[in-house]
Amino acid sequence: MLMWIIKRDLLLAMRRQSDVFTILFFFIIVVSLFPLSVGPEMNMLRTMAPGVVWVAALLASMLSLGRMFSNDYVDGTLEQMLLSPQSLSLLVLGKALAHWLVTGIPLVLMAPILGIQYDLPIEALFVLTITLLLGTPVLSLIGAIGAALTLGLRGGGVLVSLLVLPLYIPVLIFGAGAVEANMAGVGYDAHLSLIGAFLLMSLVFAPWAAASSLRVSLE
């Protein structure tokens, strides 16, 4: 069941590859705008890098949330999912995982390259990638709640950012914080464990909350 929904969403993403690339290029453009706006001074860029990459990842992940449920809502496949004898939470989990595979993973893979533009040391690049790897699934999971609540509403895209971005703050703090800690020569284990804890918590609660939201939105 979980496999079927993931397979389905990946298949759909494959047939619409341009969507995946749009998000990825959005991420690249946002990160590249910062040196243009604050100047190419390398020391400053190096301190900014973790925050910039993380904020850009937040925005990119959020922008793609609209599509998580809305296409399925429009063509009626979502209401069929609600009528499935299997647990809706599991289905939502599958959709969030598929969303992460399609939008999160490309960001994780692209991040080290963007980090090089900011002259991050090798080890910091590694930490940045690890935090994104652990943190982006949290974004997809929490985002699923926002996407489910704003389903079919006018101005849903902007609204979802209001709902979801404040909830992203802890991940942002610890994600960017880990890289900063590493660059400052301090340990970053605590940061990673906390992001890991957020991931576990959102794995447990977010699908359930998003499933209830879907039932509310489709009633």
């Binding site: 389905r8 298949l11 759909l12 047939r15 619409r16 429009v74 063509d75 009626g76 496949t77 209401e79 069929q80 009528l83 004898p85």
Partner: peptide
């Protein structure tokens, strides 16, 4: 598990 609903919306994906 014992019910099937077919509504106004086709419930099919255009890209599949």
């Amino acid at each position: 598990a014992v019910m099937t609903y077919i509504g106004h919306l086709s419930g099919t994906k255009d890209d599949l």
